[in-house]
Nucleic acid binder design. Structure first.
Lengths: 83, 83
DNA sequence: CGTGAATAATAATTCAAA
DNA sequence: TTTGAATTATTATTCACG
């Protein structure tokens, strides 16, 4: 079950605002994955997710850029090169 | 005191392995900044620091790349372009 | 406004179990 | 090897104060 759950987590984190493992647990449950918080703590580490602080007090779990990135390398990097 | 402390935090996070706010507090104390954990929680948010999970169970506070980066853009990006 | 002490909320780990 | 319940550790927030 872990692989599917991991995929679901990555998906959720990309399309929704997930501020805590508890919220993530609820969303996963809606998708049919009923797991304990302990499991999510492990999943999050295994997936390398990070909790990004926001301007306001909030924070959201996100996928690190180098993992996320579906964008072709060149078009993504050119702007950074000021070309 | 906050600006100096913020600078010290960025510095520490770059040169040492800071796995928790408690450890950060100790390191700052060594540098003469004696603050409570509550303050560090705020500082970390203000600085936009994130706690990155590591392969093993650990985690470390780090400065997001775009903020950190002292490296010249080109030499940094070429490897990503497979050149 | 920045801070700390106390507290609440959240996340990581332990320890059994399947 | 994966999981969850309970526990511990860590982090965020509240509330009062200088």
């Amino acid at each position: 079950m872990k692989p599917q759950r991991h995929a679901a987590i990555l998906d959720l984190v990309r399309i929704q605002r997930i501020p805590s493992q508890e919220v993530l647990r609820e969303r996963l449950a809606e998708r049919g994955f009923e797991v304990a918080q302990a499991t999510l703590s492990r999943d999050i580490r295994e997936l390398g997710l990070i909790k990004m602080p926001e301007e306001d007090g909030g924070a959201v779990y996100t996928v690190p850029a180098h993992v996320t990135d579906p964008t072709p390398a060149l078009s993504r990097l050119l702007p950074a090169l000021f070309l």
